[in-house]
Amino acid sequence: MIGFVARRLATLVAVVFGAMTVTFVIARVIPQNVAQIWAGVQGFKVTPDVIALVTRQYHLNEPLIVQYGYYLRDLASGRWGTSPVTGRPVAVDILMYLPNTMELAAAALLLAVAVSVPMGVVAARARNSWVDQASRALALIGVAAPTFWIGLLLQFVFYYWLGWVRDPGGMLSDSTLALYPVRHVTGFVVLDAALTGNGPGLLDAINHLALPAISLALPLVALLSRMTRSSMLEVLNQDYVRTARAKGMPEWRVTWRHALRNALMPTVTVLGLSTGWLLTGSVVTELIFYWPGVGRYAVGAVTSFDFPAVTAYTALAALIFSLANLLTDIVYAYVDPRIRFA
């Protein structure tokens, strides 16, 4: 087991290093006139000496290999480069927004699992029942409808028509922040409010989290519920399930204990892949619900040509994704003895 994890960790380091190289190529090799654009961002008058200053500052006229060295040094130093737009270290900005994205992603993941696993199981047990049909329809919507479309629709229905949510976006409303400030403990608002016993703050945070989490979770619900359904169908026909039934075990126990435990295996593997969706989908979701997350920050960086920020986030996303997959592999290996020593 330890050998397996060590090997996978070594691979991960190699992959992340490769990912950083790719982002370097995107940031420094492809774009033209970077110095000119960054100088334009910094000053109204782009004179040759301003361009020269920016060129020096970002080592743009050094050989690429030297620039690559500076790039790695920046990443290693924990500053992740300096943004030519805000003038701040990129790491400061990203770490400010990252907890918000993680909170949204975690909520979406929990919601997706909580909804899709029972739905998949029921759909498998009662094939072609209305639950099965509904889950099929939901899966189709989740897979095929653009996230921003769903997001705008949710805002309209649950905020404007039904009035179930206080705001169509944002993390906390101003009145909550003014009256029941959420004390900073972990940086995750829902968690912090719960830990400090801040009831109104907690409710408000969950209320704001609901719509973005739903729109981010929908494609995952689609994926996970169909996955659970098909693996459940497979498992329900296995010998040990039949044996359990023959022994007179109650049907609900057969389904929810025996069968589900084994049927969840493929679902666990998909969870790692879901991280990819959560990182991608959070970009659009955060824009719609003006969620102050790192995805929205990345879009702002892309449109203002803030390449240190763009590459730092892209590399970070690759790291997160790889870590999530590593974690999945470990969990999988732990659960399934056949893979343990592979």
Binding site: V16, G18, I26, G276, W277, T280, V283, Y313, A318, F321
Partner: peptide, 8 residues
């Protein structure tokens, strides 16, 4: 594979 498609 490590890059989320949209971000790259």
């Amino acid at each position: 594979l490590a890059f989320p498609g949209l971000l790259l």
